[in-house]
Amino acid sequence: MSGTATASVNRPPGSPGSPNGSGAAASASLPPELARAARRRRLVPYLLLLAGVAWLLVFFVAPMVYQASTSVQTGSLEAGFKVTWHFATYWDALHAYWPQFVRSLAYSAIATVLCLAIGYPLAYTIAFRAGRWRNVVMMLVIAPFFTSFLIRTLAWETILADQGPVVSFLNHVHVLDVTSWLGVTSGDRVMATPLAVVCGLTYNFLPFMVLPLYTSLERVDGRLHEAAGDLYATPFTTFRKVTFPLSLPGVVAGTLLTFIPASGDYINAELLGSTNQKMVGSVIQSQFLRVLDYPTAAALSFILMAVILAIVTVYIRRAGTEELV
């Protein structure tokens, strides 16, 4: 077809003076159907959000607010509780349970570091060295999830049992002497010691470290290793200057996903430790379910929450990534 297009360009009808057309005149000429459709489109996200956000507001935020109020109430189960702005509960709770607090933070911090230390080689292996085994190994990392958390933790009781082969071996090669001297085990036992609890925490939250590490390592282009090698970097320097910095988002996500649940966990402490290894979660649970001292339970969980949020905020700021949010 050879028809030449006919046109007069950029001439808004009815506004001969300005070739640009004024905004007001332009929107006035918009058909009402379009304006209605645009208004309806603006409502869509709110409708989609409604149920999910309402659920979280009612069953997550409201309980938190309520928790805050409970923590400053006094009273008894029989007489009922009233808000009396009794902030002393906080002080009393901290005073009574500070060892459990410190222990919780220390154990979960050590477990997080251990998870990173042993999880990184695994994630690295899956990402760069597993080849066609990659999917199988990934499956092996995820599959333990499907056996209950509690059952697997109980299996550690078997593994670390006093007369079991693991403890006998460690005893035989005098490893336990060293750990006893360090104060993380006592005598011939591993069970009911800090070592057992930290081992359990490390084990339980390891997949939460490996998966985000793997995700960020997988995105690292293998050719970068070659490029670094080409530019005179030794394998170790390549790792330190190229691979590790690129995997930092995974490190941040992994450490948070490990540290946060570990700090509130009490199952490992209860099953693998003794009363000397109790963590703050155990205290909250027993105050709530057994002692029925709700204000103390509320104050303790509020303190825990505040500490965790503070640590997370500072950590995310320092790490310079807010991708998680």
Binding site: M1, G3, A5, S8, P12, G21
Partner: peptide, 27 residues
């Protein structure tokens, strides 16, 4: 097209445009 235009806030992506494309052409 009769005065067809598009603005995003204060940015004008397309100034009101009049244009006619005849049937069967490759424009």
């Amino acid at each position: 097209l009769g005065g067809l235009g598009k603005r995003y806030g204060s940015f004008t992506a397309v100034h009101p445009l009049d244009l006619a494309v005849p049937k069967g052409s490759f424009f």
